[in-house]
Design a protein around this nucleic acid. Structure first.
Length: 459
RNA sequence: GGAGCUGUGGUGUAGCGGUUAACAUGCCGGCCUGUCACGCCGGAGACCGCGGGUUCGAUUCCCGUCAGCUCCGCCA
């Protein structure tokens, strides 16, 4: 496809129009912005409100549904990026109706409607077919998408036209936007760190190898080291929204090999509770922010009560006492996560629980050990609706201690030299956490498979 | 890396050792002037994933294979 030619674009400048004066700078009651830079003649489905009645309107979009109720009368539901509108067609226009999902432009006069769903409709006097759609591989205008995920993935761009899919990714957008705004408001600076790395980071086995001009490079499995470095670099508080890559062949309903990690890291924090409080505050503000637009679709609505915090060992004790469940390796397994989450909901009325004080040997080397019990760390996971959506904690900031931790795991300090550098120049106590964006999206909406919350799951 | 389950028109499902392989939806044709899961009538569309075996006979039972799904390990 040829790139847009600047010259041509400039030549067409006369056909471009200024933003409409009437367009608000704030979103409407559903949180959707009207498009300020839309071409002047075109309206969007969302704008078809009672004040448009009687006016000439032009809409463009996709034919979502056609209901022919008589030889000379049909209703057409037209969807565009803003929503959908009902178009009334009569006379010869019926013959011009293309297959569903074709792109069309219709114009006519807006009028009040007797429809239960659309207070205002467009009585069409012109219909232009822009692009005809092939027959669909599956029904797209049903309330729920019927095909299995593999087929939906194969036809992802088409499947994404379904309102449920649209909702998922508009919610995900709102979620990420809220993350950015919340932490910006807390004094965090947004950063973007490298994803192509010359050396493995935390472990090594689960990294994707890539060829970097003949050299072996790796895709970042987390921005962990970089965000710590940037905290020490003087930004003090940083966040990142970015993809991370895990080369694990775990094909489950809650794992992706490439996912969006919502990372934060902050300096001058020496109580892990501050991190948990920060996350809890964020999550509750997120639920508040999403409720007006997505409440109807969300499994959890509105802010939650305080989320209980308990040591991992206490959680394991509860599981053993209540469910006779024995931990094999001192860690909680997925079934245990579901059980402890349900337990928290029963006991505290909130489907979330912070588990902290994980043993040192099941956390990364940089996890800060507790003073009174070096076998435990100042770390935590957040279990939300039965799934681990966050991992976080305080990190070792003393360079000698960090070198020791590396040595203990038989990791080569030379490999970590660039990471260690900042620790020699006054590294403050610090910590942070990461939230899996797709997991959170899926859990909020009650989706069965995380792939439903990944917009283009190619693999 | 390990375990289990599934594979039937485009899609979603039913079914059975011998069936014209069923239903819904989608698609095509006809009818219908206020639908909103529109309705009514008619039609096309499946060698039942693939290969082998058992059997008089396999879509059905067995083995293999491929694909998909679910779970475990690991993680967010």
């Amino acid at each position: 496809m040829a790139p847009l030619q600047p010259k041509k674009w400039a030549q067409n400048a006369s056909t471009r129009v200024a933003p409409r004066e009437t367009s608000p700078l704030v979103p409407d009651e559903e949180g959707i912005f009207l498009w300020r830079c839309a071409i002047v003649k075109r309206s969007i489905a969302k704008e078809l409100t009672p004040h448009k009645a009687g006016q000439e309107v032009l809409l463009s979009g996709w034919v979502r549904k056609v209901r022919i109720v008589g030889g000379d009368l049909a209703f057409l539901i037209l969807a565009d990026g803003s929503g959908s509108a009902q178009i009334v067609l009569d006379g010869g226009l019926l013959d011009k109706i293309p297959p569903v999902e074709s792109a069309i432009t219709v114009s006519g006069v807006a009028q009040e409607s007797r429809s239960r769903e659309y207070p205002v409709e467009l009585l069409a006097d012109q219909l232009e077919v822009i692009a005809v759609a092939d027959p669909l591989p599956f029904p797209l205008n049903h309330k729920v998408l019927e095909p299995g995920l593999d087929l939906l993935d194969r036809y992802r761009p088409l499947a994404l036209r379904h309102p449920n899919m649209q909702t998922t990714f508009r919610l995900q957008h709102a979620l990420i936007q809220h993350f950015e705004e919340f932490f910006t408001g807390e004094g965090f600076t947004r950063v973007t760190t490298p994803k192509i790395l010359s050396t493995g980071t935390e472990g090594g086995a689960e990294l994707f190898k890539v060829d970097y001009f003949g050299q072996t490079a790796y895709l970042a499995q987390s921005p962990q080291f970089f965000k710590q470095m940037l905290v020490g670099a003087g930004f003090e508080r940083v966040f990142e929204v970015g993809q991370v890559f895990r080369a694990e062949e775990h094909r489950t309903s809650r794992h992706l090999n490439e996912f969006i990690s919502l990372d934060i890291e902050m300096g001058f924090v020496s109580d892990v509770n501050e991190l948990m409080t920060l996350e809890e505050t964020f999550l509750n503000s997120l639920l508040e922010a999403l409720a007006p637009r997505f409440g109807a679709k969300m499994v959890i609505k509105g802010a939650q009560k305080p989320m209980p915090r308990m040591a991992l060992s206490d959680a394991l004790a509860v599981l053993e006492k209540k469910h006779g469940k024995q931990s094999r390796d001192g860690n909680i397994d997925p079934e245990g996560e579901r059980l402890i989450s349900a337990w928290a909901e029963r006991e505290y009325g909130v489907p979330a629980v912070f588990l902290h004080s994980y043993p040192t040997d099941i956390r990364p080397f940089y996890a800060l050990a507790q003073d009174d019990d070096p076998g435990l760390t100042h770390s935590f996971d957040l279990i939300f609706r039965g799934q681990e959506i966050t991992s976080g904690g305080l990190r070792i900031h003393n360079v000698a201690q960090l070198s020791q931790a590396l040595a203990k795991r038989r990791l080569n300090p030379e490999t970590y030299e660039f990471y260690l550098q900042v620790f020699r120049y006054g590294m403050p106590p610090h910590g942070g956490f990461a939230i899996g964006a797709e997991r959170l999206t899926a859990l909020l909406l009650g989706l069965n498979n995380i792939r439903e919350a990944s917009i283009l799951p190619i693999f």
